[in-house]
């Protein structure tokens, strides 16, 4: 089937011309810097980041050294934590900083190869060796611990709720039960299922899509981590954040299950960056501007371990350390 008529040809040429014009008419004004853009802190932070000394040899570490870079599964679309900046192709955010510092800790240079993930495939990427580590708001759960190990936890984060202004009847997380709740696949859905088992999750691919869906009335509320919710609410006066959080949980760095020594190295890395104040620095640069809240105390790494039974306590405490 081919198109051969002059009108269509003309239309196509017009499109191509428009495209070419857009390519040439570039750079007139740059995009405003996004809050939480780790770009400004990244370099400074990285130069201060430690390099691991006398690391024991483990299969994963050997593979990373052989490759010359850390292959990390991260999100492309998680503002404040790990977001790919199309303007320069770099990753920015708190988790992006952690990933780069981890690479420097392991290799002496912050060489990271990012593999973008979706929520279905994180375990698979670790198990099949595509990724050395998953740094992507990866909630520590007993089910996952059967498949992967967790370094950390490196942060506790609660879920917040965004609604259209004037929305009544949601005063606590349990009020979401029976409602349509918009969210992205990932930790938010898991938290929602715990507090409101009869809520209907309405899942979209990106946060932008979720917000548009909320504005279009596709659901009663949009839940996501506090940083995203607070930041987006400030930009849209038609939306408001509800004054509670829920489902605070511990997040860890997903690691291959069969390499306990490597997990200890990662725990050691987290302890070091927390002691040196780098953790707080990165949080201050990336997350605090979004949440408008002071930097919390980092969690103690090593709690997650490789033992499934150890994972439950943080998830079961409903009030968040990061809550307002």
């Amino acid at each position: 089937m081919t198109l051969r008529r002059p009108t269509v040809l003309a239309a196509a040429i017009a499109c191509a011309a428009a495209l070419a014009a857009s390519l040439t008419a570039c750079g007139s004004s740059e995009l405003p810097d996004k809050p939480g853009g780790g770009a400004k802190s990244g370099g400074d932070l990285l130069s201060r980041a430690p390099v691991g000394q006398d690391l024991p040899s483990t299969p994963t570490l050997e593979r990373i050294r052989k490759n010359g870079h850390l292959t990390a599964a991260t999100s492309d679309t998680d503002p404040g934590f790990s977001e790919k900046n199309p303007l320069n192709g770099k990753y920015q955010g708190f988790e992006a900083d952690l990933t780069a510092m981890l690479a420097k800790y392991l290799l002496g240079k912050p060489e990271v190869k990012h593999v973008s993930i979706n929520a279905d495939t994180r375990e698979a990427l670790l198990q099949n060796g595509t990724a050395d580590a998953v740094v992507s708001t990866y909630k520590i759960t007993p089910e996952r611990m059967r498949k992967v190990a967790f370094g950390g936890p490196y942060m506790n984060l609660g879920q917040a709720v965004l609604v259209r202004k004037g929305m009544k009847g949601i005063d606590k997380a349990a009020d979401l039960d029976g409602r349509k709740v918009i969210t992205t696949a990932g930790p938010s859905v898991e938290s929602l299922k715990k507090v409101a088992p009869h809520a209907t999750p309405v899942i979209f691919q990106t946060i932008s899509q979720c917000l548009q869906a909320l504005r279009d009335g596709r659901g009663d509320a949009f839940i996501n981590n506090q940083a995203v919710i607070v930041a987006r609410a400030q930009k849209d006066t038609a939306l408001e954040v509800l004054p509670f959080t829920f489902g605070s949980a511990s997040y860890g760095i997903g690691l291959p299950k069969d390499d306990p020594k490597f997990r200890e190295i990662v725990d050691g890395f987290l302890r070091t960056v927390e002691e040196q104040g780098l953790w707080k620095q990165s949080w201050k640069d990336n997350v605090s501007p979004l949440t408008k809240q002071p930097v919390p105390e980092p969690p103690k790494p090593g709690g997650a371990g490789g033992d499934p039974s150890a994972a439950t306590p943080p998830a079961s405490t409903p009030t968040a350390s990061t809550g307002s």
Binding site: A119, D120, E123, E143, R144, R146, K147, A185, G186, V189, E190, K193, P201, I203
Partner: peptide
């Protein structure tokens, strides 16, 4: 299926 997979791996 995907939601169940995220939850139960």
């Amino acid at each position: 299926i995907r939601q169940l997979n995220v939850q139960y791996v």
